Computed example of a mutant assay.
Amino acid sequence: MQQVKSRIWIEEQGEVFLGFGRIELLKKVDETQSISAAAKAMQMSYKKAWKLINAMNSCSDTPLVITNTGGKDGGGTFLTQYGRQMIIKFETLNTACEAFLNEQFNALKQSL
């Protein structure tokens, strides 16, 4: 069966806020509670992961990720509740977009 696949992203003033790769990075941060471990799991440099997280936080009034530097109790990186909500909202939007595109594609195929 033929299906349409697409990649969407959300921009803020011309800058990418969220996209498929960034959502995957957020999920890995949530899973590992570490930017370094998340980057490694995605075969990405720490520097790139940090830049992506910083860009997402900068585009948002509410941070998606909070980092705590090391110390007596150690550091860690945590996804905020808002970050978790954005994952769900983005994935819902992406699923709806693909469903719409497939409906349109099937309608086109039937009209031929």
Rank of each mutant, 00 (worst) to 15 (best):
V65S: 02
G21E: 07
Q33T: 11
S34W: 09
C59G: 11
A49V: 04
L25V: 02
S58P: 01
T67L: 06
K27S: 11
N54D: 07
N57S: 06
W50R: 07
S36T: 15
K51E: 13
P63L: 01
L25S: 00
V29L: 04
E24K: 15
E31D: 04
L64M: 08
L52E: 08
K27P: 12
E24S: 12
L26S: 04
T69Q: 15
A55W: 08
E31F: 12
E15D: 02
M44W: 02
L64H: 07
Q43N: 06
K40D: 05
R22H: 09
K40G: 03
D30K: 15
I66R: 08
A38C: 08
N57R: 09
M44I: 01
M56Q: 00
K48V: 01
G19W: 10
L26A: 03
L26Q: 03
A55S: 14
A39Y: 03
S58D: 05
K51F: 15
R22I: 07
Q33S: 13
I23F: 11
F20L: 08
N68P: 03
Y46Q: 10
I23A: 10
Q33L: 09
G19E: 12
T32Q: 11
T67E: 07
D30W: 13
Q43F: 07
F20P: 07
S36D: 09
T32S: 08
W50A: 04
V29T: 03
K40I: 08
G21N: 13
E31C: 07
E24Y: 09
A49S: 03
V16P: 00
A49N: 00
A38S: 02
F20M: 04
K40S: 09
G21S: 09
A37C: 05
L18R: 06
L18Q: 04
A55T: 15
I23L: 13
K48A: 01
G19F: 12
E15Y: 04
K47R: 14
D61F: 13
S58A: 10
E24F: 13
S45Y: 02
D30Q: 14
I66Y: 09
K51C: 11
T69G: 11
G19T: 06
V65Q: 00
A49C: 00
G19R: 11
L64R: 08
L64K: 04
